[in-house]
């Protein structure tokens, strides 16, 4: 079926792209041993060539190398922030859903309060509290992104809680802690995991936005947001490559991750899971 073929194509292009990106960011820095900060003003703003496939920037630094380093730091921020946000969101959502009552009300009003502030504004507020660096950015992304996970997990837990298998567990003497940890959480983890993967691209964009605004990582550090920010002046001068390549490296991997997550989501669909209907 054509449907299945496009499905497979999506899976493979996404998987290969993510694989190449991971290999690049993991292997290039230790293997190449080049200084991505090396300034060579005689080489500034060279268009793409064999020596510099992505060209050079206004300080003569090799853009390919800087892009790989930038992608590395963006991915790192994205992954760690998504992980933190998912853990926090799952914990809050599960607690709210499983305990109910006042706990639920208080926690969800907290979520509402956080949600009522525009994300970027909240993120800027968090980074502004600290000196620029990787951790404030991660904290900023995590603080703004755990809310949706908390909502997803809570609603899943609430619907699972009314299932007879929870009643059966309770009747078998299970404590509320055990019901939550052994029966409810395992059921929501695939959903939460999916939310986490979908969050990585979000987090990368958030980081880039902060860096582009000059509020994220220190501007000498190569992150995708910083690279685009630095390239702004050259773009007005007609030099397209310093903007294009970091931009592509932001778009392509995030699309690939979203594609993989989409395949995963289809797999979670219960209709696909039961191949046999007896």
């Amino acid at each position: 079926m054509a449907d299945r073929r496009t499905h497979r194509l999506r899976l493979w292009t996404s998987a290969v792209t993510v694989g190449v990106v991971l290999l690049a960011v993991l292997l290039v820095p230790p293997l190449v041993q080049l200084d991505e900060q090396a300034v060579d003003l005689s080489q500034k703003l060279l268009p793409p060539s064999w020596d510099h496939p992505f060209g050079t920037d206004d300080l003569g630094r090799d853009l390919l190398l800087r892009c790989v380093y930038g992608l590395r730091i963006s991915l790192l921020v994205g992954l760690v922030a998504a992980l933190v946000a998912t853990v926090v969101g799952t914990a809050v959502g599960a607690a709210a859903g499983a305990l109910g009552g006042w706990t639920d009300r208080c926690l969800m009003r907290l979520v509402d309060a956080f949600s009522s502030v525009p994300h970027l504004l909240l993120g800027i507020f968090v980074v502004a509290l600290f000196r620029p660096g990787v951790w404030p950015v991660i904290a900023s992304v995590a603080v703004t992104h755990w809310l949706s996970t908390a909502r997803i997990v809570r609603s899943e837990v609430l619907s699972l809680r009314t299932r007879p298998f929870v009643d059966a567990a309770v009747s078998g003497g299970a404590s509320r802690w055990r019901v939550t940890v052994r029966h409810l959480l395992p059921a929501v983890l695939p959903q939460a995991g999916l939310a986490a993967v979908l969050m990585v691209p979000h987090a990368m964009w958030h980081e880039s936005a902060l860096s582009f605004l000059g509020l994220g990582l220190p501007s000498h550090q190569a992150s995708l947001g910083n690279l685009v920010q630095n390239a702004r002046s050259s773009l007005l001068a007609g030099d397209w490559w310093p903007t294009l390549f970091p931009g592509l490296l932001l778009i392509v991997p995030t699309l690939a991750i979203a594609g993989l997550a989409g395949v995963w989501r289809d797999r979670l669909n219960p209709r696909r899971r039961s191949e046999l209907m007896l």
Binding site: P164, D167, A168, V170, S171, G173, R176, H183, A187
Partner: peptide
């Protein structure tokens, strides 16, 4: 819920086994 030692003195079986068993 009722105290555990009382709960476990009463066993219960529901109508629909599909929803009454933890699928994992």
């Amino acid at each position: 819920r009722a105290p555990r030692e009382l709960r476990t003195a009463v066993g219960v079986v529901f109508q629909q086994p599909r929803t009454a068993a933890d699928p994992r």
